Computed example of a mutant assay.
Amino acid sequence: MTALAVAAGRAVEASRPDKLIDDPYAAALVENAHSLQDWPLVWPPNPLDAPPLHHPILLASTYIGMRTRFIDDFLQPAEQTPQTVILGAGLDTRAYRLPWADDARVLELDLATVLEFKAEVLAGLSAELGCELVSVPADLSCSWAEQLQAAGFDRSQPTTWVIEGLLPYLDADAQLLTLKEVAALSAPRSRAVIERAVALPRTEDFGAKLREFSIQSGLPMSELLARADPPDPARVLGVAGWRCTEHPVQELCSRYDRRISLTPDAETPEMPDAETPDAGPPAAQRGGLVRAWL
C-alpha cells in the first residue's frame, strides 16, 4: 500500500505542467495493482475541488516530487559509483528512467512480492533498463547484509546508497541497524543519500492522534512508539568517518520553488496532520534528507 501511494505521488508530480520529475511508469504501476483505494494520478486544475480523499496524496505528491528530484540529481552519471543499492526500493523506477553509465549496476532490496509485481508490470510495458538490475528480496526490518552479498554485492567497490521512504517506517533499532550495515559494507569513495526520520513530538495532542491511528490501522501503540527516538543518520555515519550535509524540507521547497500546499499562494505549508497509509508520515516526521560521502 505504501509503495502504491508513493507511485501515485510520483504520477501526480509527473503530470504537472511544472513537473520536477519524469516518471512514465508510475501511473501504470498503480493502475495494474487494481487497488480498491481511489488514488489520484494527475494534478487537478484546481486541487481544492478534488475529492477530499485525494487531498492527502495531492499534498504528499509535492514532497515526493521534491524528494525524488533531489535523489535523481544525486544519481547523475558523472557522479555514479560502480554499484548503487536502493534500500526499500518499492515501485521506484530509477533503473529504467534515469541515465546510467555503461557499466552501472543497481541492486534493489524490498519484499519479494513488491519486486515481482514491479518487474511483471514493467515487462508488460516493454520498459527498457538503463543498467544492470539485480532484485534482492529482503525484509528490511531485519539484517539484510547477507542477502545483499549473496546477490553479488562487492564490498570492495565504492557504492552509492539510496535510502528513501524507508527509515520513517522502521523502529529506531531497525533504523540504527540499517545505518550501521551501510557503514560496515561501504568501501572508500562510497556515498549515500538518506531520507531521515525525526523524533515524534511528545505531546498529549500528538499522542491522541497516534492512538487514533493505532485503532484505524491496527498497528499497536508499542510499534508506533518504537519509532519515537530514531537515530540521526548524519551522526551515525559521521562517527564512522563520513562527511555529511543536511537538507531540511524547507531547503527543498526553496530549491525547487514549491509549497507543500493545495493553494499555491499559501503563506505556510500544509501537511497531513496524522500518519496515514496513503499520505505517508506527517509533517513532523518529514526530516528532510542527508547526503554523505566516505
Rank of each mutant, 00 (worst) to 15 (best):
N46Q: 14
P233C: 09
E246N: 03
P137V: 12
T68W: 00
A8D: 05
G238Q: 09
L107R: 05
D232K: 07
D265W: 12
A172M: 06
A292G: 10
E270N: 13
W161M: 04
A274H: 08
E181T: 00
R235V: 15
G280R: 04
G90P: 00
Q285D: 12
V121S: 06
A184W: 01
V114S: 09
A60V: 04
T2A: 11
T2G: 11
L59R: 04
E251P: 02
L219R: 13
P248N: 05
E164L: 06
A60H: 05
R211N: 09
R69H: 07
E164S: 11
R202F: 05
R67H: 07
L219E: 13
P269D: 15
A95E: 05
D139E: 14
V249R: 11
F117E: 04
L20H: 05
G287Q: 08
Q147V: 05
A266V: 11
W242V: 07
P233G: 10
D103Q: 15
L210N: 04
T2F: 00
L179D: 02
A33H: 14
G9M: 06
T178W: 03
M271R: 07
P51C: 08
T62Y: 03
D49N: 14
D278N: 12
Q175W: 01
A104M: 08
R97G: 06
L167E: 04
L125P: 02
L115F: 10
G241C: 10
A138Y: 00
F206T: 07
I64L: 12
P158M: 09
A26Q: 04
A208Y: 02
M66V: 10
A187M: 09
H54Y: 14
G207E: 06
G90T: 04
E31A: 15
L115N: 03
L148H: 00
Y96G: 05
P56W: 04
L185C: 03
A266E: 13
Q37N: 12
A50K: 07
M271L: 13
P233V: 10
G9E: 02
E108Q: 12
G65N: 09
R189S: 11
P231L: 13
A11D: 07
L53R: 13
T160C: 02
A119N: 08
D232S: 14
G90R: 01
A14D: 03
C253D: 12
S35P: 04
L179Q: 02
L20D: 03
T203H: 10
Q285F: 11
L225M: 15
L252M: 14
S135H: 05
G9Q: 01
A183I: 09
G218Q: 06
Q149L: 07
